[in-house]
Amino acid sequence: MEIDLVGESIKFMILGMTVVFVFLYVLVQLMKLQAYIIDTYFPDPTPMSPPPTPKSPAEDEKARVAAIIAAVAEFRKTKSSSKG
């Protein structure tokens, strides 16, 4: 007997499209679940937020010097005030 090509191929189409959609739908749900689990319980040690804009070395040095001066000044102030 001749195979009814069209009838068979329509059956293949129904099966195929169903499997593809179910597969991808479950995959979508798993992706969401995985994103939820990872976000909640295993946050990435290196967050993807844009890194702070790097300063030029000279600017960096200035800031450090300023911080040291401020700290020393603060230290002296507290020291003198505790003595006095």
């Binding site: 195929g16 593809v20 959609f21 597969f23 991808l24 995959l27 992706m31 994103a35």
Partner: peptide, 11 residues
């Protein structure tokens, strides 16, 4: 993730 369904439709 839901854009994966578009990849399914194209099949």
């Amino acid at each position: 993730p839901k854009t994966a369904l578009l990849g399914g439709a194209a099949q």
